[in-house]
């Protein structure tokens, strides 16, 4: 079972409801100076999803497009394969989720991700990595991701990836040239679970289009293989990393009890 979202960019009106839903459900901060929408939307640890307002040209006329971005949940995620601490895992439904209790803070995932999705909580003394979880808990209960459910125009369709691919192809075929003939995410980085349809070229929309079609993970596995012979000398280092994680977890649990869970 691989759940997926098909996002039809021609249906997005830029209302930003998806970004608010994401913050409400995931208890992310509404930070001043880091808007999740608009021409200067900021992708950071509290904006797991952004809707960037792009003024582009289509057939010689100006058009405004709104590009919702978040973790693409690759089929073979580079972040998962580079994470030696197994802090990034693929859930039963197919969401690429992050386990803060396992993360040692090395930030390999940030280097590994071809879409620069994982962000770091730089403002914290002992930071976590931060990214869209595809609302793994919500989808495990049979619900749709928060952002998908909040969209007033139904721009996003949640379902099995194969079904979404078929739907996307059908829309392109029946659209009378309405869409460009490209399902973003079908092949990018070996395939992703979020799929996009558009009527203007994805490169014009600021999306990463220069990614290889083979999974990044296939390189990183090779690279990681070399780490095994080095293991012997690693005990000491590992202890240090464990301390880092443990200390952060301790602080976290003591803070969690004080932390007000409601948003401001």
């Amino acid at each position: 079972m691989t759940k997926s979202v098909l996002l039809d960019l021609t249906q997005c009106i830029g209302c930003g409801a998806c970004t608010v839903a994401c913050k409400l459900w995931n208890q992310l901060e509404f930070a001043d100076g880091a808007p999740a929408t608009g021409e200067k939307a900021v992708k950071d640890h509290s904006n797991w999803t952004t809707v960037t307002f792009r003024k582009v040209q289509k057939d010689g006329a100006p058009v405004w497009r709104f590009v919702k971005e978040q973790c693409l949940h690759c089929l073979e995620p580079a972040c998962v394969s580079v994470c030696f601490a197994k802090a990034l895992q693929i859930s039963k439904e197919g969401a690429v989720v992050y386990r803060p209790d396992l993360c040692v803070g090395c930030r390999y995932c940030m280097l590994g991700c071809p879409f620069s999705v994982p962000k770091y909580e730089w403002q914290r003394s002992l930071p976590n990595v931060s990214k869209c979880q595809m609302c793994a808990g919500k989808i495990a209960q049979g619900e749709v991701p928060a952002c998908v459910g909040a969209c007033p125009t139904g721009a996003m369709t949640f379902g099995e990836r194969d079904d979404n691919l078929a739907l996307a192809r059908q829309r392109i075929e029946q659209g009378n040239g309405r869409y460009i003939n490209h399902i973003y995410g079908e092949k990018e980085a070996g395939g992703t679970r979020w799929l996009y349809l558009s009527d203007v070229d994805f490169s014009k929309l600021g999306m990463v289009t220069n990614v290889p079609e083979v999974p990044i993970a296939s390189f990183t596995d090779d690279y990681l293989r070399w780490t095994v012979p080095l293991l012997a000398g690693g005990a000491l280092l590992f202890t240090a990393l464990r301390h880092y994680t443990k200390r952060r977890n301790d602080i976290e649990s003591s803070q969690a009890s004080q932390k007000e869970s409601k948003k401001k």
């Binding site: 995931n26 030696f84 992050y98 780490t227 690693g234 005990a235 994680t245 976290e252």
Partner: peptide, 21 residues
């Protein structure tokens, strides 16, 4: 990634946590 192997081998997990959701 020295510790990568170490962590996978150690198999020692603390309480499962998640972010958001």
């Amino acid at each position: 990634g020295i510790a990568g192997g170490a962590s996978s081998l150690s198999g020692c997990l603390v309480n499962e946590q998640k972010v958001g959701d």
